[in-house]
Design a protein around this nucleic acid. Structure first.
Length: 963
RNA sequence: GCGUCGGUAGCUCAGUGGCAGAGCCCUCGGCCGAUAACCGAGAGGUCCUUGGUCCGAUUCCAAGUCGACGCACCA
């Protein structure tokens, strides 16, 4: 027989002890808080409860009187179910608002919906037909309203399910009469401030919408277009030659290049750059052509000829030269413009003021006609040469053929370039000059004022500032009129002859607002000019347009506040500046800009103090989530399986400043992290069963050293978490929180605490000390997680011990005041880094013993530590309680001089060195606390217990000071 | 084409002009009084690439590259 190893001996002893049940007198954890979260099932129940107890109202009532935090919810468009992007956005907002409450603010969350506009019209058209077919405009609008309401209900359900705590029963809707009316009042202020002007200029026009589009509704996509070089014959060959310094008068053509042949009917001029050099060149079969010198070579290559340059002239010298339009019966002048470049083409630019902004601008300078031959239906007007009655999309072909026939077509190619498209229809837009109403960027200094305000706003991340500043600096006037039905009317009267606004427009708008607020939009649409203007009616027309929907949502800073908080307006009837706007980064040119412009135009100030943006969701390969790729993960699906809290934790854990990655894999990881946090809370709760903080709480000065240390580190963490929340850096909150649960609590504090909690008498100061600290930790922790893990926080909150008012929700709380002692700690703060470092070193040595099968549990081991200096001092300070720190059965420290040769040396990161001697102990195992102690068996009444347990069971109880 | 931001372990993210960090994941082990839990150990990195400044660069600078986004082009 071989001798038994220490371990085998120990195991035999274990078997004997199992005969007696020592669990009873132990204080084992107990709680109603389940380990299994079952979020998918339980969250809906909790939601029902929140709704029944009117949680939002409760929280707001509890916050009343605190400093106001005014958050403006960017309204999602009321069409379609919410997708992951919506979920991320709304959840981030919820976290911001909840965190603001923790900081002691009265933070309202009034959700909003954007209800007017084309997409809803299109849906209704699909179902009920176009206006004028089966139903009139008023009935059409009623259907739109109905449709929007249905969509809102669906979206609202999904948002609620995410645990977003908001005033869901009283949202702001841009189609509420109160909102619509206030929007008209906003318009009145903007008109009053002189920003609204009429213009007849090219705007983005969608042939499918039959309407102008805002900048934000335009997206650029690649498109194939015919690229043609067209020769315009010089009307006076002698004049041309003279300008090039030549004597003869040979026919010549001026070559332009364009990718939109259909705009040629509107051609009014050829633009040249005044400072560029132009040449008159012999170009093979094409004869003499004029084009920019810098492009002669590439053009000649394109035409397959070798050029023979005859003469040169500056662009400026060509001004006023006349050329014959290739198919219309008119001559057009050469004009000068800075917009001409050598990037492509010929350096001579076909100029159609009705179809291009540059063209319009330069044309204005030369007094060219803004002659728009394209009707609202996309067909050329009668009388247009060559293409009258033809649709724009079919015109290219006809025109090219005609050019070819007349010999004006020098070259034809197909190019792929990026081209503006309608973001709804995904079809190519055209530029079309129509009479429209604009918010002028410069007439009254709106642009410069807006740029100033950008500088006064906090942009998170910071690069957003540069982005929006450039956009505002470069954007054209804002076209606010739309030729649609479903929208807030541009409720103004226009003078028939002068085409100017009625001089009383602001006052009239207020009157319209009054009526709209009471009777709805039909009060305007159903009215006649005479109803408003009486005797003047004959001189004015009612503007039939609606307002750009971006004007609707852009007015939310005022309208949302008014429709929910009318009593809190200032003396001028103005809403306070919002503390934050929070949307996806695409809104720089969308809502952030439209809000800025309306706010500055009406009151000279930005609508927000801070603007936070987040990126878009992508899959594991970094591809944008989209329906067409089929790589999307629906938030509804996640709620139904893993639970909304897991989704929320994912949102929190992601650094949203860039793209936000989601995959099944990732969710699994997050679910693991969730469980870890949940179990940590569970352990805390389960050891607080029966603990009444008022009765059992230990004053902070009397807490054991490690408990005071635990409170100190919790406070440090709380400071960090508070900072991270204030910066909306939720991913840092998550990391710190998770790390804390894993490392500080699970890996150290709670592990060490078990002995004291389980084995000391239930009401002993030592156990109560631990519970006091744990109580404060969980009180703090439940608040830390509340903005993120809202369901779980509420669940914990309801199980926390101690008296708390039955109505006060965790969401109405501010940070927990972690008690701080004024008396010096039992172990000086400087000792902890040493103790922690030694503990790490000891773990490695114990693992070594474990691998060699000397021990299993750390309680099978005994330690002897050798050190000097601060390391020795730290260890000696804990003295006889060291074994509880290391969770070994015995641990002692001795001066370095006594160190045996076989002790393991460990250099400590904070400085100092410790030598560790560890071995399996031969002592018997106490049946109760499982420590192996030489005094097990010495007590006749309790032969299986160690002295400490005997003391704890039948004596006064052991005393602990440190661990 | 221009601009902005970013590239650190398989993943999510910290961090720093001076030996590269955490957690998760993974592997191995322990415990069996947090048990569909808990504890420990280990493996895992050219800190995107190339130059430059510096005693020393993952960090600062420049160029490049990849990715995201924005702007422009769109005549």
């Amino acid at each position: 027989m071989s001798t038994l190893t220490d371990r085998e001996v120990n195991q035999e002893a274990d078997v004997k002890d199992q005969a007696v049940d020592y669990k009873k007198p132990l204080n084992l954890p107990q709680t109603a808080f389940p380990m299994q979260a079952n979020l998918a099932q339980r969250e809906p129940q909790m939601l029902a409860r929140w709704e029944a107890e009117k949680l939002y109202e409760q929280v707001q009532a509890a916050s009343r009187g605190r400093k106001l935090y005014w958050f403006v919810d960017g309204p999602p468009y009321a069409n379609g179910d919410i997708h992951l992007g919506h979920a991320v956005n709304k959840t981030l907002k919820d976290m911001v608002v909840k965190a603001a409450r923790l900081d002691g603010h009265d933070a309202a969350f009034v959700p909003g919906w954007d209800c007017h506009g084309l997409p809803i019209e299109l849906q209704v058209e699909k179902k009920h037909g176009k206006v004028g077919q089966k139903l009139d405009a008023a009935a059409f609008r009623a259907k739109c309203r109905e449709y929007a309401l249905q969509q809102i209900d669906r979206q609202r359900q999904d948002f609620k399910r995410l645990g977003v705590l908001a005033d869901w029963e009283r949202p702001y809707l841009t189609m509420q009469p109160a909102y619509e009316a206030e929007q008209l009042r906003v318009l009145a202020r903007i008109v009053e401030n002189g920003h609204v002007v009429r213009g007849f200029k090219p705007v983005h026009w969608c042939l499918d919408c039959g309407s102008s589009l805002a900048e934000a509704e335009v997206e650029y996509q690649d498109k194939q277009s015919p690229a043609i070089d067209v020769s315009f014959a010089a009307a006076d060959a002698a004049d041309l030659s003279r300008r090039f310094g030549l004597g003869d008068a040979v026919p010549a053509g001026l070559v332009i290049w364009t990718t939109t042949p259909w705009t040629l009917p509107a051609n009014q001029a050829i633009s040249a750059h005044p400072d560029l050099d132009y040449v008159l060149a012999e170009m093979g079969p094409w004869g003499r052509l004029v084009l920019a010198e810098g492009l002669v070579e590439t053009a000649a290559q394109r035409y397959g000829v070798s050029p023979n340059i005859l003469a040169r002239a500056k662009g400026a010298a060509l001004e006023g030269l006349r050329a014959r339009h290739p198919f219309a019966d008119r001559q057009v002048p050469v004009i000068l413009g800075e917009h001409v470049t050598l990037d492509a083409g010929t350096g001579l630019v076909h100029t159609a003021p009705a179809h291009g902004v540059d063209d319009y601008v330069v044309g204005k300078k030369y007094g060219l006609a803004v002659d728009n031959p394209v009707g609202a239906d996309g067909k050329f007007l009668p009388g247009t040469p060559l293409v009258a009655g033809l649709h724009v999309r079919k015109a290219d072909e006809v025109i090219i053929e005609a050019l070819r026939g007349s010999g004006a077509l020098v070259h034809l190619a197909t190019i792929t370039h990026s081209y503006p498209h309608c973001w709804r229809h995904k079809t190519p837009l055209i530029f079309r000059a129509t009479p429209q109403w604009f918010v002028s960027m410069d007439d009254r200094g709106l642009r410069s004022r807006a740029v100033d305000e950008i500088g006064r706003t906090r942009w998170i991340p910071g690069w957003g500032e540069e982005r929006i500043r450039e956009m505002v600096a470069g954007r054209p006037d804002w076209c606010i009129s739309r030729q649609r039905y479903w929208g807030v009317p541009l409720a103004v009267f226009v003078h028939r002859q002068a085409q100017t606004l009625h001089p009383q427009t602001p006052a009239l708008l207020l009157r319209v607002a009054e009526r709209v607020e009471k009777e709805g939009l039909e009060a305007w649409f159903g009215s006649s000019v005479g109803d408003w203007l009486g005797g003047e009616a004959g001189e004015y027309d009612k503007c039939p347009d609606t307002l750009d929907v971006w004007f609707d949502s852009g007015s939310a800073h005022q309208c949302a506040f008014v429709s929910t908080n009318p009593q809190a307006l200032d003396a001028d009837g103005l809403a306070p500046q919002a503390d934050m706007y929070l949307e996806g980064s695409d809104q720089h040119r969308g809502w952030f800009m439209s809000s800025l412009l309306t706010s500055v135009a009406m009151r000279g100030r930005a609508p927000y103090k801070a603007v936070l943006t987040h990126g878009f969701t992508v899959d594991e390969q970094g591809r944008k989530m989209s329906k067409s790729l089929g790589n999307g993960i629906e938030p509804q699906q996640i709620s139904k399986t893993l639970g909304a809290d897991v989704l929320r934790l994912w949102v929190a854990a992601s650094d949203y400043s860039g793209e936000i990655t989601l995959s099944e894999n990732l969710l699994k990881r997050i679910a693991d992290a969730y469980r870890r946090i949940r179990n940590t809370a569970r352990f805390l709760l389960s050891n607080l069963e029966g603990f009444d903080p008022a009765r059992d709480g230990v004053p902070v000065d009397q807490l054991l050293a490690i408990d005071r240390w635990a409170l100190d580190s919790a406070r440090r963490l709380q400071d960090e978490i508070g900072l991270a929340y204030r910066d909306a850096q939720f991913h840092l909150v998550y990391q710190k929180l998770h790390n804390y649960c894993v490392v500080d609590l699970g890996g150290l504090y709670l592990d060490v605490l078990k002995d004291r909690l389980y084995t000391m008498p239930e009401r002993s100061p030592g156990r109560r000390s631990a519970q006091t600290a744990m109580f404060h930790v969980v009180e703090a922790l439940v608040r830390w997680i509340a903005p993120i893990l809202s369901f779980t926080a509420d669940e914990i909150w309801r199980l926390l011990p101690g008296e708390r008012s039955g109505t006060a929700s965790v969401f109405a709380q501010t940070w927990h005041a972690l008690p701080q002692s004024k008396s010096p700690p039992p172990i000086v703060d400087a000792h902890w880094p040493q103790l922690l470092a030694v503990r790490e070193a000891v773990k490695k040595v114990l693992e070594d013993l474990r691998v060699r099968e000397q021990i299993g549990s750390a309680l099978d081991a005994e330690l002897k530590l050798y050190a000097e200096g601060p390391t020795f001092d730290a260890l000696a300070a804990v003295g006889p309680e060291l074994r509880f720190w290391f969770i070994t059965s015995e641990a002692a420290v001795a001066p370095l001089s006594q160190r045996p040769a076989d002790a393991v040396e460990a250099v400590l990161p904070p400085g100092g060195t410790v030598w560790i001697s560890a071995q399996a102990t031969g002592a018997g195992k106490c049946g109760r606390c499982w420590h192996r102690r030489p005094d097990v068996g010495l007590h006749s009444a309790h032969p299986l217990l160690c002295g400490r347990c005997v003391e704890n069971i039948s004596g006064a109880g052991e005393r602990r000071l440190y661990i």
